[in-house]
Write a protein that binds this DNA or RNA. Structure first.
Length: 287
DNA sequence: CAAACTACCTGACTGC
DNA sequence: TGCAGTCAGGTAGTTT
């Protein structure tokens, strides 16, 4: 399940293997994967043909690939959703089961490869952002992520302390800070010994500073290990799985002993998904 | 305006 | 063996 570390692994792979390549052909095999491109699949394919990828950027879980011709200043915008993958493959490789969009590329030395968007659950997708080379307007509302050099911790703490929502819900709100999903939210809260149901406006600034430090650490740790992978749905740009799941302390560990105190990890329903926490280390707020 | 809820999607898995 | 039900969860859009 791609969160920020996984998306960053993909971005750096694209930077290495796709920047500088020219798009010679686009095949949209599943309309839903380009649904964010309002003009439709045919227009998407026609607009990309002949263009050259000049960079690979990221904010939170969004990726974009600015294209040549600075006057146009457009970019391919991508989100992996739940199960999306971007794979660089030789043209001879068999089509993947859930191959949705295929970009045929010609690198500077004339070699042909393919950038393939593969996505089982089709929550992800590609689109063309007309003026989005610097920051696509479609994601202007997405806050900076904790690994961004210009991440404004004081601003984020201020936002949290003015909200009556639970802290886990706030960590998942991409307009407050971006890049954190269910897995890393649970891990950071476990590290900080804070229960996800505690209200933002009832947390001390010092505790929030520590929590955001843990968020940064857990994202950084996962990034150094190449991202998390649970079910082979996520693989990086060359098809390699991450292995951070072995280092998780809370997420997915229901009934297993807490690594700090031995109390069994609990699982509770939360926003149509699950939250995992240690009921001893992370004291729930009064109802 | 903030906060909370729902639709979207496929495949692995569980229980009868 | 088959089949219905559950679960995984990020985001946009809708409702409260």
């Amino acid at each position: 399940m791609p969160e920020l570390p996984e998306v960053e692994v993909v971005r750096s792979g694209l930077e290495r293997h796709v920047v500088g390549a020219r798009i010679t052909r686009v095949d949209v095999l599943h309309e839903r994967s380009v649904r964010r491109h309002a003009a439709g699949a045919t227009a998407f394919a026609e607009a990309l043909a002949g263009r050259t990828v000049v960079a690979a950027r990221r904010r939170g879980k969004y990726l974009w690939l600015p294209l040549d011709d600075a006057r146009r200043g457009d970019a391919i915008l991508a989100h992996l959703g739940m199960s999306g993958q971007l794979l660089v493959q030789p043209v001879t490789a068999r089509p993947e089961r859930h191959l949705r969009v295929r970009l045929t590329l010609e690198s500077a030395d004339g070699a042909a490869t393919e950038l393939r968007f593969v996505d089982q659950r089709t929550f992800g997708g590609l689109s063309l952002s007309p003026g989005g080379a610097e920051l696509p307007t479609e994601i202007a509302h997405i806050a900076r992520d904790p690994l961004d050099p210009e991440f404004d911790e004081a601003y984020v703490i201020g936002r949290i302390r003015r909200s009556a929502s639970g802290i886990k819900r706030l960590l998942l709100t991409q307009t407050v800070l971006s890049g954190v999903g269910n897995i890393y939210a649970d891990e950071a809260l476990w590290r900080a010994r804070i229960h996800g149901g505690r209200r933002g406006d009832r947390l001390r600034a010092t505790d929030l500073r520590a929590l955001l430090g843990h968020v940064r650490d857990v994202l950084g740790d996962a990034l150094r290990q190449g991202g998390t992978s649970f079910d082979a749905l996520y693989v990086n740009v060359n098809g390699q799985s991450g292995y951070f799941d072995r280092s998780l302390h809370a997420y997915g560990r229901v009934d297993e002993p807490c690594a700090r105190c031995g109390t069994p990890i609990r699982r509770v329903a939360f926003m149509n998904r699950s939250s995992y926490f240690c009921p001893a280390c992370q004291r729930p707020p009064r109802a």
